[in-house]
Design a protein around this nucleic acid. Structure first.
Lengths: 193, 193
DNA sequence: TACCGTATAAACCGATCGTTACAAACAAAA
DNA sequence: TTTTGTTTGTAACGATCGGTTTATACGGTA
């Protein structure tokens, strides 16, 4: 059994993810993926099967390494109010940062593909549900500690906070400037006061 | 000067708009547009110039006849609180209605194209700015009438309400069910209480 | 060194992309 | 009826699409 695989599969998916994230599924061609991953055409098909499968892998990787990882990190603080503030401030800051594509890959995908494709929709839905649940747990924990008003409807406020996340991700993809996004982020903080 | 144009241009743009709205720019082919408009290939190019120009016309038509018209109708009520409630309830109801494409054509476009195309971005931005201004005017009018707390930051709350509109439009494109969207709509109402 | 499976580069596939060209059908104005 | 400009149907354009194939270069194993 000679020779192990040479190129880094995870690295290739990471680069493909950035291409899909930035341009969307339809507008990203195989040629784009070859250019961004740096691996050969044949190797790409051999390793991943095709454009569609590579997209799914990219979406799953984004969900795991961006959304899940970030939320887990915030939840580990065990200070929900600080976690919320950090989350929103990070979203605003990322909208002004040019090292990563703008917006949210999951949100973009929910609009472009999820409504026409069940497999993709399930991935996006699950991510959204977990995001909302993150807010809900934080609110409920804070309420038991007396850090947030017990009069808050945790489920409803969680949905609203998540909605503001979605909006910041949409508007942050080039339409709103950082200052306007910060106003929304500040209002989000105000919702749990 | 013989023979006036036979097919209805506005009707053709209307049908093209629905195709673009449902599938996006990239995923809508010329063949799709021919099928949805019902007009001939040559006529389409002769009348509109091409896919890109037809898309722009479609977007402008959507903005004028859907967003502008609806907001004008609501503002004519001269009862901002009722107008806001009607607006959000309509958004929720439309997400459960299958006669029109789901979501918002402007929001979809802001994600797919606006970040890469200045002309399109300007159309989307203008629509968003006017939508936000609609909320702000309503809040300020209500404040002078004593219908909303004068302590509200009108500009900030307007941005937040518009953010919830965006989120409902995104999540309403197939990911969230009507009940979840209604929770968000109810929270929106609560923001101006 | 001979072998074996992978990576690479390139040519290649049929299909479809957006767009153009053109001849025939057509309806009102002259 | 001739003229004029539009619509229509069809064919074709070059380019690119996603995907397959093939021959060659390569690097560990035996």
């Amino acid at each position: 059994m000679p020779w192990e695989k040479s190129f880094n599969e995870q690295n290739a998916i990471e680069n493909a993810m950035q291409a899909f994230w930035e341009k969307g599924y339809e507008a990203t061609s195989i040629a784009d993926l070859i250019a961004s991953t740096g691996i050969n055409r044949g190797s790409l098909y051999n390793a991943f099967g095709g454009k569609r499968q590579l997209f799914t892998l990219s979406l799953l990787k984004y969900d795991a390494e961006t959304r899940k990882a970030f939320l887990a990190e915030l939840e580990a603080l065990d200070k929900p109010k600080l976690a919320f503030k950090t989350l929103f401030d990070t979203l605003v800051q990322q909208a002004g940062n040019n090292t990563l594509p703008k917006g949210c890959f999951l949100v973009n995908t929910s609009i472009e593909i999820a409504s026409h494709d069940k497999e993709i929709k399930d991935i996006v839905s699950q991510g959204f549900i977990e995001f909302e649940a993150f807010f809900r747990r934080g609110i409920e924990v804070s309420q038991t500690r007396g850090d947030m008003p017990s009069t808050l409807n945790a489920a409803a406020v969680a949905k609203t906070l998540f909605s503001l996340v979605v909006a910041i991700r949409v508007l942050g993809r080039g339409v709103y400037d950082e200052a306007s996004l910060q106003v929304i982020a500040d209002q989000a903080e105000h919702l749990t006061a």
